[in-house]
């Protein structure tokens, strides 16, 4: 369990973190969501003991990170934004070095490393130089590093950023496996990125907590309004008017392009997003307008902030 109480961090005059408090329960997966520059990395750096806070406390399983740093750090595995890898070492050399500095007992080392390597699936590259690995594999080695020493808590700072879609799916799968027997804090600036793995989210903005909510409650609140994206060919004006007049549609903006494919951004109110798709299909079909693309748009963080503040 992690208890974070009124954390403040100033960089000179700048308040990067400005009074953040939340707790992470045992075996919980907590999403830490906020736009770039919100203070996610700074908060995580303080929790893990890399930075000192200007004020406020962090307790890890009851141990204060400043007063009993050894005990607190022992329970935490950290994957920073930039994975701390030595490119000139092989994966195995590197993980052995991590065992050394995390003071893993010699007798336990072999077994523990074998388990970690199998779990994060880096067996094939164990003897390769880290510098020669792909980004996805480097990220896995970074996660392996965090797992050394069997910490009960994992802190992952934007673990999927910069990866390609396949690698993202793989890393997410790995995180879901790890979530079974660890408490996890995972940060992101995209809600959909962490929606599937997290129990709760803490949303921060400009160094302050904007909301703490379970994923289900948050989804309910966001369901108040959703957006659909439609690309089509045909008479843009006419179709726009017809879609606008559908019940449940509050707005429809169309970008008319030079080519013959137009894009419409449709705002739907209420929980009717799924029903409205049927009606829109018939509109298109009546007009013999081919649909090129039709999908729901993830809410942006700004929209999330708006709906959160509107609800309270």
């Amino acid at each position: 369990m992690i208890e974070i109480n009124n954390l403040v961090k100033h960089y000179g005059d700048k308040k990067a973190v400005n009074g953040i408090s939340f707790t992470v329960e045992d075996d919980e997966v907590l999403g830490f969501l906020g736009p770039n520059g919100a203070g996610k990395s700074t908060t995580m750096n303080i929790i893990t003991g890399y930075l000192s806070s200007t004020s406020g406390t962090v307790k890890v399983n009851g141990h204060d990170i400043l007063e009993e740093p050894e005990l607190a750090k022992k329970d935490i595995g950290y994957l920073p934004e930039l994975p701390p890898l030595y490119l000139d070492m092989t994966v195995l050399e590197y993980l052995n070095y991590i065992c050394d500095i995390k003071q893993v007992k010699r007798s336990e080392r072999k077994e523990q490393l074998a388990k970690i390597i199998a779990m994060v699936k880096i067996t094939d590259v164990a003897d390769r130089l880290i510098g020669n690995l792909s980004k996805g594999y480097k990220q896995r080695v970074g996660i392996a590093q965090a797992l050394v020493g069997n910490p009960s808590i994992l802190i992952l700072d934007e673990p999927t950023v910069g990866l390609d879609p396949n690698q993202i799916i793989e890393i997410r799968k790995l995180i879901r496996t790890l979530a079974k027997d660890h408490s996890v804090i995972i940060s992101s600036h995209i809600l959909s990125e962490i929606q599937e793995v997290c129990d709760r989210v803490v949303i921060i903005n400009k160094g302050k907590v904007a909301a703490i909510d379970t994923i289900t409650d948050l989804s309910k609140r966001l369901a108040g309004s959703s957006k659909l994206l439609l690309s089509f060919k045909g008479d843009a004006k006419k179709i726009m008017n017809e879609i606008r007049s559908l019940p449940g549609v509050s707005d429809c903006k169309i970008r008319i392009s030079d080519k013959d494919i137009h894009e419409a951004e449709i705002t739907v109110t209420g929980n009717s997003a799924s029903d409205i798709r049927t009606s829109i299909f018939y509109v298109m079909s009546r007009n013999s307008s081919p649909i090129m693309e039709f999908r729901s748009l993830d809410p942006t963080l700004e929209e999330i902030f708006l709906s959160i503040t509107a609800g309270t």
Partner: peptide, 13 residues
Amino acid sequence: KRGTEILYYTSPI
């Protein structure tokens, strides 16, 4: 430069 210094701060060493 590589960000590996973080290891010294976050481990018990």
